[in-house]
Computed example of a mutant assay.
Amino acid sequence: MNLRTLRAFVEVVRQGGFSQAAEVVSLTQSTVSKAVKTLEEELGMPLLNRLGHRNELTAAGEMTYRHALALLAEHANLVAEIHDLRGLKRGVLRIGLPPVGCGLLFANMFAIYRSRYPDIEIELTEYGSKKLRECLQAGEVDLAALLLPVDEGFDYQPVRNEPLIAVLPVSHPLALRKRIDFTDLADSPFILFEAGFALNAKILAACERKGVTPKVTARSGQIDFIVDLVAAGLGVAFLPRMLAHKHQHAGIALVHLDEPQTDWHIALAWRSSAHLPPAARAWLDLAAQQQLSAGHPL
């Protein structure tokens, strides 16, 4: 058993197939397949049930996946500490960001960071919240932008807290209201983000608290497309205030959502047990400086 084999197995699980995993680990599909087979032979049990084009974890696979994540994380931690011990000058910033809102929050920070630390390499990983948490747990990134609350075992530094805004077509009967909640929208179809986006869970949990069962008419990972669908009258959507204002146009109405437990509270998270490299600590320091200078609520 070696780390390369474990990494291949983890990516097959995470990416949902051998060909997708091969692209991530920069190996051929046959090499990835052999790596998983070797791991199964070494452990003496099948780890995956091959169901057509799908692969499902067996009980042994579930156990192996959990331990593989832990071993990969420990290896990443060891490498980071050794680099510090050697006084590594260049360094690598390994950061994971979700697609929603991070352009507005972090694009300018990347420019400032690059000007301050031109020799530090930046490795950017972009996934939804679920995959980002897994990447963080596996030590594949040192920092990840996640919605609060974060999982046990993570520490975090708050970045921005934004209320959600309901995005309605201008023709909607409630478009002129100043504030609405989910009971007001019980009969309106919802347009949500794709599966894996943490914002969906906040919205659906708030609906459940109000006894509302929303009809989801569409999902997308693209904010522009979601806003266009709203403008076309397909349903209502929900965006953090800063994003709603950025995408405002004549075809939509923005109404404050009176649901306080749905706030989009984003933070930079890291593993509590991990050694945080200097490159990551410098990013956290810059994030704190930027938020203080901008006067944004944390």
Results as ranks from 00 to 15, higher is better:
Glu194Trp: 10
Asp84Glu: 14
Gln248Asn: 08
Val230Lys: 00
Ala59Arg: 15
Ile165Leu: 01
Tyr65Glu: 11
Leu104Thr: 06
Gly16Asn: 06
Ala237Glu: 02
Gly153Leu: 11
Cys135Asp: 04
Arg179Phe: 04
Gln20His: 06
Ser188Trp: 00
Ile165Gly: 02
Gly196Phe: 11
Leu234Glu: 03
His247Leu: 05
Glu81Met: 11
Asn161Arg: 07
Ala111Glu: 10
Glu42His: 15
Ala73Gly: 15
Arg241Met: 01
Pro149Phe: 14
Asn200Leu: 09
Glu121Arg: 13
Gly221Val: 08
Glu134Thr: 08
Arg50Ser: 15
Pro163Leu: 05
Arg271Val: 12
Asn200Glu: 05
Val32Cys: 07
Ile122Thr: 10
Gly91Glu: 10
Gln222Lys: 10
Val79Asp: 01
Ser188Cys: 07
Leu136Cys: 01
Ala279Pro: 04
Glu162Ala: 08
Leu72Tyr: 10
Phe238Ile: 04
Trp283Arg: 03
Leu276Arg: 03
Ala198Val: 05
Thr262Gly: 05
Val13Leu: 05
Leu104Glu: 06
His247Trp: 04
Arg177Glu: 07
Leu257Glu: 04
Tyr117Gly: 09
Leu85Val: 11
Val159Tyr: 03
Ala70Gly: 09
Val100His: 02
Gly96Ile: 12
Leu72Val: 12
Val10Glu: 02
Leu292Cys: 10
Tyr117Asp: 08
Ile120Asn: 06
Gln290Met: 15
Ala80Leu: 10
Asn2Glu: 05
Ile112Pro: 06
Ala60Tyr: 12
Phe18Ser: 01
Pro46Gly: 03
Pro99Val: 10
Leu143Gln: 00
Val12Gly: 02
Glu123Pro: 06
Ala80Gln: 05
Leu93Val: 07
Leu104Arg: 03
Leu51Phe: 14
Ser26Tyr: 13
Leu148Phe: 11
